[in-house]
Lab assay of single mutants.
Amino acid sequence: MMITLRKLPLAVAVAAGVMSAQAMAVDFHGYARSGIGWTGSGGEQQCFQTTGAQSKYRLGNECETYAELKLGQEVWKEGDKSFYFDTNVAYSVAQQNDWEATDPAFREANVQGKNLIEWLPGSTIWAGKRFYQRHDVHMIDFYYWDISGPGAGLENIDVGFGKLSLAATRSSEAGGSSSFASNNIYDYTNETANDVFDVRLAQMEINPGGTLELGVDYGRANLRDNYRLVDGASKDGWLFTAEHTQSVLKGFNKFVVQYATDSMTSQGKGLSQGSGVAFDNEKFAYNINNNGHMLRILDHGAISMGDNWDMMYVGMYQDINWDNDNGTKWWTVGIRPMYKWTPIMSTVMEIGYDNVESQRTGDKNNQYKITLAQQWQAGDSIWSRPAIRVFATYAKWDEKWGYDYTGNADNNANFGKAVPADFNGGSFGRGDSDEWTFGAQMEIWW
């Protein structure tokens, strides 16, 4: 008995050590931004985005507190085989008060198993909700290839000249389909599951310092038995992507060409959309029709120009041509140079221009935006974070068209359509004006 009692403290210590080691193995990653800002004409900070554009130049032009908190852990490992559990909870508030209630979004919860298939060394099996191989332009917060959501897949299969990845994910639309009631009355209240099937071939070395990635995505509306879509709904579509990445000037340049059809055009990033119906009456549900095509040509990157200068840049042309004439032509160009006074202090400027032409009206909206920021960051790279910055932003815009969301679809035949700025004596778009804002912001990723 005495021997047992003497061994007990040692056993407890060993158990505590094991539990401590396991606790220390938890990975904590994430992203956050928050700050305070004012508008020159009075009131809180207002942000500037061109009507019809899918993004905006973000430096000194973000008006919310946003965070993603990721917890993950390698829960099992034997040799080169392992299982990893990953989670991500995100939230966004308007940064107007101390207490701002919000419903967090559970954006990731997945398990990734590496090297589980003997004859596919280096590959990963995964299932669950996941940010899946996302491609974006940081300076405009624009995701041009992103099929994230609940799904499953097999990735990084070594095929000799590259890595092959296969995945299936889902994005549902509210009110996407109906069941038959009586007297030809349909009640569009059932969600429609939109499935996306993704095939990618990446890391193909085609020139010194250059790699090529090719991808095909097929999206479709997956209806339940005895349900139907509204007439004209976009049932399926394709997205084709080619991306060349070149190492240059201690950074990279990415050149991207994408072509999409029908349900893959509205978001243009790989998620299927077009079966959703915002109104019970299918007579007024025309606005979900996105049959047509999209072409996107994009070049972006980040480079170092000597010891003291870094720069991000982007140039993009996007043409969404829809059968219902509600598409757009959008082109944007911008730069973000950074001058480093010390390894932790810099001055950053961002200059961006957007131009969006309405397919329906032929009119154009444009905006110039310039931001000057003094910044303190954890390192001497344009990617170094955390960063604390004080900024001043000036924007000038001239908008000739907007979307008509007055009333509702039952009493407005133009609901959701592009109209000229002065349509029917109204005021659509943001008109011709300018404004400036100033404030302070922190940004961090880890």
Rank of each mutant, 00 (worst) to 15 (best):
Asn326Thr: 06
Val216Gly: 09
Glu435Asp: 13
Met349Thr: 02
Asp422Tyr: 12
Met349Leu: 08
Ala421Ser: 13
Glu282Gly: 10
Trp322Leu: 10
Gly210Cys: 05
Asn287Tyr: 08
Asp231Asn: 06
Ile157Asn: 11
Gln359Pro: 12
Asp217Asn: 02
Ala302Thr: 04
Met312Thr: 10
Trp238Arg: 02
Thr347Ile: 00
Ser178Tyr: 10
Leu164Ile: 15
Phe180Ile: 09
Cys47Tyr: 03
Ser177Pro: 07
Met311Ile: 06
Phe255Val: 09
Asn321Asp: 02
Gly270Glu: 03
Asn190Thr: 10
Arg130Cys: 01
Gln22His: 04
Lys250Met: 03
Asp198Asn: 02
Tyr31Cys: 09
Met312Arg: 09
Arg360Ser: 11
Thr39Ile: 03
Gly232Arg: 11
Gln203His: 09
Thr245Ser: 09
Val196Gly: 11
Ala94Glu: 13
Trp331Ser: 15
Trp309Cys: 08
Arg389Leu: 11
Asp363Asn: 11
Gln95Leu: 05
Asn115Lys: 13
Asp325Asn: 08
Asp187Ala: 11
Asn321Tyr: 06
Glu191Ala: 06
Tyr259His: 07
Ala109Glu: 14
Asp404Ala: 08
Gly274Ser: 01
Val277Asp: 05
Phe423Ser: 11
Met19Arg: 01
Gln441Pro: 15
Gly60Val: 15
Asp141Asn: 06
Ala109Ser: 13
Ile382Ser: 12
Val14Phe: 05
Met294Lys: 00
Val75Leu: 12
Ser178Pro: 00
Met312Ile: 11
Asp136Glu: 13
Asn184Ile: 05
Phe428Cys: 11
Ile344Asn: 09
Asn190Asp: 05
Asp27Val: 06
Tyr403His: 07
Asn61Asp: 07
Trp330Leu: 03
Phe142Ile: 06
Gly352Ser: 10
Arg220His: 02
Gly17Ala: 10
Asn281Ile: 14
Asn156Ser: 13
Asp363Val: 13
Asp380Glu: 08
Ser247Ile: 03
Glu155Lys: 15
Ser34Pro: 02
Tyr57Ser: 15
Ser263Leu: 00
Trp38Gly: 05
Val12Phe: 11
Arg224Ser: 06
Gln246His: 07
Met2Arg: 12
Gly128Cys: 11
Arg389His: 00
Asn190Ser: 10
Asp195Asn: 04
Glu282Asp: 12
Leu223Met: 08
Ala378Ser: 08
Arg430Cys: 05
Ile303Leu: 08
Pro343Ser: 00
Phe161Leu: 12
Met311Leu: 09
Ala181Ser: 13
Asp325Ala: 05
Gly301Asp: 00
Trp331Leu: 04
Asp225Asn: 02
Glu357Ala: 12
Gly327Val: 06
Gly149Asp: 01
Cys47Ser: 13
Asp422Glu: 09
Gly37Val: 09
Phe438Val: 15
Asp231Val: 05
Pro121Thr: 13
Gln375Glu: 15
Trp446Gly: 15
Thr332Pro: 07
Ile344Val: 05
Asp103Glu: 14
Glu243Lys: 04
Ile344Phe: 07
Asp410His: 13
Trp436Gly: 15
Phe252Val: 09
Leu5Met: 04
Leu69Phe: 12
Thr50Pro: 11
Phe197Ile: 11
Val196Ala: 11
His293Leu: 04
Ala152Ser: 14
Asn289Lys: 07
Gln49Arg: 02
Asp27Ala: 07
Gly219Ser: 00
Pro208Gln: 06
